[in-house]
Write a protein that binds this DNA or RNA. Structure first.
Length: 555
RNA sequence: GGGCUCGUAGCCUAGCUAGGAUAAGGCGGCAGCCUUCUAAGCUGCAGACCGCGGGUUCAAAUCCCGCCGGGCCCGCCA
């Protein structure tokens, strides 16, 4: 309902300006508390045009405006026009809306189909914390967009045609796999061992390229070896994804685009444009679009390259919906080239969410050299740490409930610590930070939800209640609750899921403060406050589910 | 060498796309709050010339230019 308040304020400014024959885009901001709930600095911009000081102008404009609807009051202060929310009016409507819509509060509908590619880690080892950033951003965005009304399908692109998998296959022929290990970790072990032998004996390199060629041609035995290796690894990866609640709708194998001849069809289509050129190889000349680096599409022997297959994959995706790709920063150039290739073919271009790398204090991670922190380790450590906290705080709880809480808190903390940081920010991973359940982290939000649940357990929810005049803590909470739908569409439209993480903190913060200062059960405003708690619980749960974090009932 | 990106208190982050009022939080530090709905909570104090220099503007953390520092990309690899 906050959006309605904004629209009413906008309408009022528009109306008054129109009377003066002015039409302008109005920008609002949320000021600090003493200046109301919404504010516009429009008069600073108009002042030179109208030849009046902003202060006088603000007074004039505010004088012509009328409060009403969700606007209680309009006040000019130092050139700003400030709007005050009518809490008496908004509060009961909002609480009823949330109570009746429940987990649909804030939901949008009727938006387009989205094909969202994320995670897509090579099947040569377990997911490490860098892949986790990709998957968590992708999964959270998928949840947010789905809630905002998009029809989202998430896809994991399996790179089965890379050299890495060939090395694994080669390694599997030489070394015995450790069947006691988690499958993706066992594959990683083979990969690291094989890489080492190959580095020491360069003469084996030809065997690798031989394997790759055989797989590309689809030689039966080799094909099943590759598929076995990739699936073996993916089994392990899937287990981890399930644990951290990253949902993949479809797994798409890179080789399938070669086998069904989409790759050659894509090359054919590109051949009909003026951009496809040939010397020893086929390549795209994108200099017209400001990309000087030509994009090479085939080897001298005519076989396709990774990008060629990726173009075919994107053509297929584009035919099914709007494409959104979650890519690491190293893919920036490729993503531009890919996008241009699609543009040349007259296909709707994909959108990219680019995130910076997570590195270790000592430098980059490397699956090949076995230098990485796996997501499994991180989740284990996090859950273990959470269990220690539960034991400390709730020693008498039964063990299975303790374990359940610890797992939810541990997974939630990992997801939250990643998603709360804007994707363009590089991260240096440090154990102390990753495992520190900071005050304003996911336990903080889960705890707010748990607190709300415990109050509701003990309270009777009456059908009717009187809305009293609100304290500032209550107002703040009501306002934050009313902003949830605005934040959802903001996060979905800008494809920036970390907006929801920030909102979650703001909401939990408002709730904890309310909890501290406004007793519910022993208050003469009890009936109202119980409803406020109910609404808070619903919105907290909705927010947590967008973040992929369990809304715990107790902890 | 060319291109992209990040730089906000001792440490970590929000705000930057659409420039506006005292730069908002957390960690760490100091001082407090549990016979009252779970203290994974709350309150107070100290701590920032928003990397540096210029420009545009009535107004710049935010836009533009230059510089410095970190990261990434520029394969007939994936």
């Amino acid at each position: 309902m906050f959006d309605k308040f904004i629209n009413q304020a906008k309408g009022e400014v528009d109306r008054v300006l129109e009377e003066k024959g002015i039409s302008k885009e109005i920008v609002f901001e949320e000021p600090i508390e003493e200046f109301g709930d919404l504010s516009t600095p429009i008069c600073f911009e108009l002042a030179p045009l109208m030849k009046k000081s902003p202060k006088v102008l603000a007074e004039e404009l505010a004088g012509d405006m009328e409060a009403g609807g969700f606007i209680r009051e309009i006040k000019p202060v130092n050139g700003y026009v400030n709007f005050y929310l009518n809490y008496e009016k908004l509060t009961p409507l909002l609480l009823e809306k949330i109570k009746s819509e429940k987990d649909n509060y804030g939901r949008g509908k009727g938006k387009e189909k989205i094909i969202l590619e994320c995670t897509s880690a090579n099947p040569d080892g377990p997911l490490h914390i860098g892949h986790a950033r990709n998957g968590i951003i992708g999964d959270t965005l998928a949840r947010v967009m789905r809630f905002a009304g998009y029809d989202v399908e998430t896809q994991y692109y399996v790179n089965d045609m890379g050299k890495q998998l060939a090395v694994v296959v080669w390694g599997l022929r030489r070394f015995k796999i450790d069947s006691k290990k988690k499958k993706d970790h066992a594959i990683s072990e083979i990969y690291v061992k094989a890489t080492k032998v190959l580095n020491e004996n360069p003469e084996y390199e030809s065997e690798i390229s031989g394997l790759m060629k055989d797989y590309e041609q689809g030689t039966k035995e080799v094909k099943s070896e590759f598929e076995y290796a990739a699936n073996y690894c993916l089994d392990g990866i899937r287990e981890t994804l399930e644990r951290i609640k990253i949902n993949i709708d479809t797994y798409i194998w890179e080789s399938s685009f070669l086998r069904d001849s989409s790759v050659s069809k894509a090359l054919e289509r590109l051949g009909k444009t003026k951009y496809l050129k040939k010397n020893d190889v086929l390549y795209l000349d994108l200099s017209e679009f400001g990309v000087e680096k030509e994009l090479i599409l085939t080897r001298k022997d005519g076989t396709s390259l990774y990008v060629t297959r990726d173009i075919a994959y994107h053509l297929w995706k584009s035919s099914r919906g709007l494409v959104v790709d979650i890519f690491g920063a190293d893919h920036k150039l490729v993503s531009t080239q890919l996008s241009l290739a699609l543009r040349i073919l007259g296909v709707k271009q994909p959108e990219f969410v680019i995130y910076e790398f997570i590195s270790l204090p000592g430098g980059k991670m490397s699956t090949r050299r076995g230098i990485f922190i796996s997501l499994d380790e991180l989740l284990d450590e996090s859950a273990e740490r959470a269990l220690r906290e539960v034991n400390k705080r709730r020693p008498k709880l039964n063990e299975s409930l303790k374990a359940k809480i610890a797992e939810s808190v541990g997974v939630g903390a990992v997801r939250f610590n990643v998603i709360k940081i804007s994707p363009e920010k590089p991260i240096i991973f440090r154990w102390e930070e990753a495992l520190d359940f900071e005050r304003q982290g996911s336990p903080f939000i889960q705890y707010a939800h748990a607190r709300a649940c415990r109050i509701l357990e003990k309270a009777e929810i009456k059908d009717s209640y009187e809305v009293p005049s609100l304290s500032s803590n209550e107002k703040k909470l009501v306002k934050v609750l009313s902003k949830f739908p605005v934040k959802v569409s903001e996060a979905a439209e800008s494809r920036r899921p970390h907006i929801i993480a920030n909102y979650a903190l703001e909401l939990a913060d408002s709730f904890h403060r309310f909890y501290m200062f406004e007793p519910v059960l022993k208050s003469d405003k009890k009936d109202f406050r119980v409803h406020l708690v109910l609404a808070s619980k619903i919105v907290l749960a909705n927010t947590l589910s967008l973040l992929g974090i369990d809304p715990l009932e107790e902890m």
